[in-house]
């Protein structure tokens, strides 16, 4: 039972379980508190601070990869760090998403000439959303998360449509 948005009366909403789960997932994207470099100040600290307050979108930090849905790779990944990033990604339970935040995580950024730097975190883990900038503003990160929400929504719709077609 739910209040109908248009008539204001009690009504019954029909939703597939899959869609219901995705609705929940979309609106509680908990990210792992794992700041690597400069971008962490903008993408993790300012973001959870009072002005940008990602909490209102259901985006909040968890300290352990086992409880996180999203990994924000906020910073330069070098060869020593790469192994850890991969391990952390493997430790996260499915379904999981990765946001590459900043020029460094996207391509190696201002440090890409240095041989120790991994040229984009997509060489180690699959990336869902790229956020350009050095560092991206917290607003950009917010937009990135909105894109991720859209992506999750679309994935379910695509999956349902594919199933419909096959029947």
């Amino acid at each position: 039972m739910a209040i109908d948005r248009f008539t204001g009366e009690h009504s019954i909403a029909f939703i597939r379980v899959e869609q219901l789960f995705d609705l929940a997932r979309r609106n509680s994207l908990w990210y792992m508190a794992f700041g690597i470099a400069c971008c962490a100040i903008e993408g993790l600290m300012s973001a959870s601070g009072p002005r940008f307050d990602f909490d209102r979108m259901g985006v909040f930090f968890r300290a352990s990869p086992r409880q996180a849905d999203v990994m924000i790779v906020a910073g330069t990944v070098n060869k020593k760090m790469a192994e850890t990033v991969k391990t952390l990604y493997d430790q996260m339970p499915e379904p999981k998403w990765v946001v590459a935040m900043g020029a460094c995580a996207c391509t190696g950024g201002p440090f890409r000439e240095y041989p120790n730097v991994v040229l984009g975190v997509d060489q180690i883990v699959p990336v869902d959303v790229y956020i350009p900038g050095c560092p991206p503003r917290p607003e950009s990160v917010q937009y990135g998360f909105m894109q991720l929400q859209d992506k999750i929504k679309k994935q379910t719709e695509d999956r349902l449509a594919a199933r419909r077609d096959s029947h």
Partner: peptide, 10 residues
């Protein structure tokens, strides 16, 4: 060394 990115060398 987990964040070594060669500032001095660059």
């Amino acid at each position: 060394g987990y964040l070594h990115r060669g500032i001095e060398k660059l």
